[in-house]
Simulated assay, not measured.
Amino acid sequence: MARSSRQPDDSLAQEARGELSPRAARALWWGTAGLVLSVLGTSVLVAGTEHGRRLPVAVALVLSQACALRWQARAPVAVLAANAATGLAVWALLPAVTLTGALLAAQFALCVLSATRPRRVSVRALVAMCLPAPLAFGAGGVAGLAVYLLTVVLAWTAGQWRRAQQARTRAETRRAVVEERARIAREVHDIVAHTLSVMVVQAGAADDVFTERPEQARQALRAIDTGARSALGELRLLLRAFGADTGEEGTGEQRQPGPSLVRLNELADTVRATGMTVHVHREGPTDGLPAAVDLAAYRIVQEAFTNTLRHAAGATELSVRVTAERECVRVMVVDNGRPQQGRSAAAGTGRGLVGMKERARLVGGSLRAGPLPGGGFEVAARLPTEGAS
């Protein structure tokens, strides 16, 4: 069962690398061998009526060409050389067969070689296939020469077109992998960074009051426990979305809803537990937003909270305003931290702020972040809701 479940993935990986899967190689062989046997075999049988003694040898050569095509995906150079030699032998035995028809199997091998081997190799093979052209001219005149050269060039061009298609597929695969890795990295960063920042603040507070006010220390420890459980729940959702969580659902653990602006108050509570005052203002409904916009807005607010906890010196108050309009969602997060030169530089180079800007960009929005003239730091994002995926 495990082997059969991996076969589609292996085939896709081989196709992305420009290789043929076993099934595709078999289909290619059956298709090309069938054409060679039907077209060239018919020509040989018709032409062989005048050369009865040569007919069995010519038929054997045609069968050997069809069999050699079985390995054209693995060794196209060797198959091309073998089929070119046997094709010339068929033409020498039965001059009534056109040179184009006699070298039909070699042209199929040239197409596969052009698609799967470097261009310098395929160009040399193209030149080698053009060398017998004078024979076509001697047998069929200008028309025979033109037909032969045209079919050879078309076979090589078809292979080059296929090679270009494979290159585009590989480029798209690499780009998709890079984008997916970046998305996973942003998700993990947002979950872990925010939770750890809150836990560090709570642990410091618990240590300060552990002896004199044990009940307050216990509250801080309970807040750490709640934050850790919330982060683990989000990580499980993330792993389940990527197919990495193979555990059964519903085994005594209640499934936690995913990150959303609907849970904005819960996010604010985790920051309030550190002793900071958090004001949340909402304007307009946010429960019907596109999933990508909803997640981006939530993560932007979460990262703004994290930056305040980690970098805002003396910050005691946070203000969050979410405005849901018909065409967009506006998110603004402002803290009252003291002005800091280092935090001004982080507006353009910090990983968290870069991640916020990237999240806004991916849904077609924009984000600006920087210190305020009178102190504090502001993060403002505009995320369009129309056309968001």
Results as ranks from 00 to 15, higher is better:
2 A>F: 08
12 L>F: 06
18 G>W: 00
26 R>Q: 10
33 A>N: 03
42 T>E: 10
51 H>W: 02
54 R>H: 10
56 P>R: 02
59 V>Y: 00
61 L>S: 02
72 Q>R: 08
73 A>N: 03
76 P>T: 05
80 L>M: 02
83 N>I: 01
88 L>R: 10
109 A>E: 01
114 S>L: 02
115 A>S: 15
119 R>K: 09
119 R>T: 10
124 R>H: 05
139 A>F: 08
159 G>P: 04
162 R>L: 12
165 Q>T: 10
176 A>V: 01
181 R>F: 07
186 R>C: 05
191 I>T: 10
209 V>N: 02
216 Q>R: 14
224 I>R: 04
234 E>H: 04
235 L>A: 04
237 L>H: 04
243 G>W: 07
255 R>L: 11
256 Q>H: 11
265 N>Q: 05
267 L>N: 00
269 D>P: 03
269 D>M: 09
276 M>G: 05
281 H>C: 08
285 P>V: 02
291 A>M: 06
292 A>I: 07
294 D>F: 08
300 I>E: 05
304 A>T: 03
309 L>P: 09
312 A>F: 08
313 A>C: 07
325 E>D: 15
338 R>V: 13
346 A>Q: 14
354 V>E: 03
357 K>P: 00
369 A>C: 08
371 P>M: 06
371 P>N: 07
373 P>D: 11
374 G>N: 11
382 R>V: 15
